[in-house]
């Protein structure tokens, strides 16, 4: 039976045409209800895991158990233990859904943790953007801040960074600064420009409340056109949702 299953499975993987897909589903349905391997449950579990892939970083444990459970389900199906396979596939799907929920709940905290990690990494590297002020011997960089998904409001972690940036700007009154807003790669081009612009504007407003004069600051929105990280992983997206500071 397992070779039939794998045949159908490869058919579904290979076929891009809808009729072949439909045929495969018809076959799948026919076989699954007639006591074959629980293809449908396995597929559903696999799909859930795929769509939960982004939660790997923020709900690592749950996601890993989901992955483990799916593997066991697949092994059970291959060995002909169909009831067990079905049970485990369903469990895997539930775990994947749970991972998504956990990741969402943890998102803010997780993001903050990642930001902190990045900040440490950034500090251990040499300072990228050197500005030597006349009355200061130390070098200082205006640090990049990061935003939550779909958000242009300033989160807790970014606020602390901006407080430091503001202090430097207040100590160096002659410096002008350009605030560059960016988004991650998801979303449509023009709306992302608008979103990045709004990120820049909300940074400008926040710095104003800390006493930095508005005329010293300009804002540009680059949308998703100038990514800092090129991957598709959640951490890459997080690195790209940012506002950078350029002095001139």
């Amino acid at each position: 039976m397992s070779h039939v299953f794998s045949l159908i499975y490869s058919l579904r993987l290979l076929s891009r045409r809808r009729f072949a897909f439909g045929l495969a589903i018809a076959l799948t349905l026919a076989i699954s209800a007639c006591g074959g391997p629980p293809t449908e449950a396995l597929d559903a579990a696999e799909k859930s895991l795929l769509s939960a892939a982004w939660s790997e970083d923020c709900a690592t444990e749950t996601y890993n158990s989901a992955q483990r459970m799916l593997r066991e389900a697949q092994e059970a199906a291959a060995a002909g233990r169909h009831d067990e396979a079905k049970r485990k596939a369903e469990a895997a799907q539930r775990l994947a859904e749970q991972a998504k929920l956990d990741a969402e709940l943890n998102a803010e905290e997780c993001e903050r943790r990642k930001n902190a990690l990045r900040a440490v990494e950034a500090r251990t590297e040499t300072v990228v953007h050197n500005v030597t002020a006349t009355n200061e011997t130390e070098t200082f960089s205006l640090e990049t801040i990061y935003f939550d998904f779909d958000e242009s409001s300033i989160n807790e972690g970014s606020r602390r960074t901006l407080d430091q940036n503001a202090r430097w700007l207040l100590n160096n009154q002659t410096q002008k600064v350009r605030i560059e807003g960016h988004t991650d790669a998801r979303g449509t081009a023009e709306y992302n420009i608008a979103l990045s612009q709004r990120r820049g504007e909300s940074v400008k407003r926040y710095l104003q409340t800390l006493g930095v004069d508005a005329p010293r600051m300009t804002v540009v929105g680059y949308g998703k056109e100038r990514p800092a990280a090129f991957g598709d992983r959640e951490q890459d997206h997080a690195l790209n949702r940012r506002a950078e500071f350029k002095t001139h």
Binding site: A26, L27, L29, A30, S32, A33, C34, E40
Partner: peptide
């Protein structure tokens, strides 16, 4: 034949397939 089997099986799976 395939269609008939599919329909029968569909009734069993309570029409839960997204399609």
């Amino acid at each position: 034949t395939l269609l008939a089997c599919s329909i029968a099986c569909l009734a069993l799976t309570a029409g839960s397939h997204p399609l």
